[in-house]
Design a protein around this nucleic acid. Sequence first.
RNA 1: GCCCUCGUGGUGAAAUUGGUAGACACAAAGGACUUAAAAUCCUUGCCGCUUGCGGAGUGCCAGUUCGAGUCUGGCCGAGGGCACCA
Length: 845
Amino acid sequence: MERYNFKVIEKKWQTFWEKNQTFKASIKKDKKKFYCLEMFPYPSGKIHMGHVRNYTIGDVLARYKSMQGFNVLHPMGWDSFGMPAENAARQNNLDPKTWTEENIKTMKSQLKQLGLSVDWNREISTCSEDYYKHQQSFFLDLLDKGLVYRKENYVNWDPVDETVLANEQVIDGKGWRSGAVVERKKLNQWFFSITKFSSDLLDSLEKLSKWPNKVKVMQKNWIGKSFGCEVNFDIKSSLPVKTIKCFTTRPDTLFGFSFLALSIDHPLSDFFKKDVEFIKFKNECGKTGTTEASIANAEKIGFKTNIKAINPLDVTKEVPVYFANFVLMDYGFGAVFGCPAHDQRDLDFALKYKLKVLPVVCPPNEGDNFKITKEAYTGPGKIFNSQFLNGLNCPDESILKTIEILEQKKIGKQKINFRLKDWGVSRQRYWGCPIPIAYNNRGEVVKIPKKDLPVKLPENIKLEVKGNPLEHQKNWKEVIINGEKCIRETDTLDTFVDSSWYFLRFCSTENTNVGFDLDDVKYWMPVDQYIGGVEHAILHLLYSRFFTRALGFNEKNFINLEPFEGLFTQGMVCHETYKDSKDNWLSPDEVESKDGKIYYKKNDTSESVKVGSSESMSKSKKNTIDPENIINNYGADAVRFFILSDSPPEKDIQWSEQGMISSYKFVQKFWSLHKIIISLELKNDINQSEDIDIFTNQMIDKITKNLENFHYNVIIANLHEIYNFLSKNLKKIDSKKNLLSNYEKILKIISPVMPHLTNECLNELNAKDRNEWPKVNKKFLKKVNFDVVIQVNGKKRDLMNFNKDINEQDLLFEIKNNQKLSKFLKDKEIKKSIYIKNKLINLII
RNA sequence: GCCCUCGUGGUGAAAUUGGUAGACACAAAGGACUUAAAAUCCUUGCCGCUUGCGGAGUGCCAGUUCGAGUCUGGCCGAGGGCACCA
């Protein structure tokens, strides 16, 4: 039997698709569009299994939708700005552009080997001028709309490398490369006003019915809406300041007020700039690590001032004002009123500094002598110890009532606060989109005129300088705008900006004049199905949602502001981890399995290997499998088949060599079966049995439903069932004509998963309309006979086959004659029977 | 600490609105073919008597129901997100 030569056949079809421009997308107004998008890759060098999984899932969907008659847009591009290029270039002494372009070349050819139905005419790369010139133009538009501004903000500063570090580059408070203790430094930076859209970004989540709930919850928490009020506290001090403003969600606990705490960056701190003790305290605060754990476990410390704050609801009461390390400047007003009895954090602080703890909410089962010791009470109850607030139900009634009183007295105002902060987009890096701004000698911001865009990144730069390489480009920095000498902004844009609108660019790649054409975008947008990793659940997706809103802000004629109609987040690809006796990681290539044990291959077999848990593939743990090797050994169809099998696409999948081999065998088995089917000689041309029609139509029905619901692992099981059915029942089939017409439909429903194999088979069948999804013939879904489950007292006792319209009386008659059931029913009266038509009957005795 | 999700064989997992639990595969054991191996095919899968049949069984404990993997309440365990957010 001829073996299936995937190398030849896969290449053949990939060439065919390319020549025929099979996947080229263009606007067809009479057809329903379907925009299928997977998150575009960062060109890091080679594709990894995560890419294979992501793009296979998307490709199956794109091919299926196309067969269903949708006009499909399925593009691909490169998220090609970013730090890894700068680091790699520095290491290998070449420039980021060359490094990036080489990687793109490699990865593109690898992706093509997977047989993706991508329209490569629309390929984009965010590091190309053709792309980022539009981004610079958008930046200026947003600046004109008042959605971009500049302010001072803290950054992680590495004093040795003289560079700004991203949070993930700070490890235990030290720079990842230099090991120097990271400092907080204030820099002027550009910000996008994402908080202007806080409410809308939050409320619109409800409309995203095709998004995973998990992602919506994460975004909701990230935006972090809280309802409360702002309160003005009068203060007594020698300073020229009369009041301090606080935000609180619990104004009803104001009578438990025992201190007021300020952030060390609060404007009032200016008056303490020369206070030695305060400087000491501030340094102490700076020492707290930046890791999440260290922040959470950090001790609460304060610096007591001689300022007193007056309780606005009882002006006879004064409390001390502190600076405290746990108060954040960028939330609320950088000042909190402390009520230790009903807030754990405030209680910790109060206990340390021996401040008064007065409970004002009495829990349901407690009396007036209720006391707080070590745990704050945050539950419901009745207000007490609070003069005119006493007796109010907490929290519903008491909070609203207190806000009302504060508003009447003009000392407070209802307020909704968001946790979301404005998006800082300045990066002190070379390999990013230049910000189209310069500064004149008066320090004023000057916009680069649009006609002068793009502001190109200078080439042939020296990377091995300290700090941002652009700072050292004298020729590039100096620019004359409107006859005035200016210095360019040397910061570049966060790469999340690049990915916040690339889905719009894909709609109009042929138009070089504008970032996107409104007509194109109106046809293709929104993305019907977006597919990618859950690690982008918050930032990338939120920024993209913001960016479409920002672009549409104050525009009369724009698209729907939600860019992604449907979202699917796929799981990771995992593999077992291995270590040798010295705890060095070993790659799967370096080990082999013998008699159920795993050994280090290169050594004699006496050295066994420590097998660790299965974890997401990563270079650091060496548990990666190179997709290119796998494609070369088994072919793209087998890889696609395997990566979809076993686990549902939203869950993590275990890579298994065994599973991969079995997928490869499936391709081979199927090819052999195909050869048998097409060479089968059947005399009858009249159909005797409808078994194959019934089976085929059931499968079309099942696979269609499974495709619609992303149950791709079940589809693989369905494909196994198809093979099993055909190979077992071939002998029983009498009509070749009928066999082939069913077989053709079967090949079509397999084709999204294994496009090369099925196209070759369909070709040998001379099938017409290869790109048409078969319709279910409902006639064959209607069963005439049913297996009815016979239960006695809810327990299954037998299966009996009946005609579909049998009535309950006849059914009971048959049951009584059933020998097998007689032992359960003998001498017993059937008190009741529940009959679910064509399914089940439950007899109660 | 708060929020979310999930617990089904040795493993990955299936299972319309509550209606045959374990589809489909991986691994294992036994068998067939073979001089042998590989490949292929078949059988088995928890407990009891052992053709067959009966019992238990979807993390644990209750509840609703003729009937619960599925619904409700409580508990235990795992994973993920946020993290001094006032």
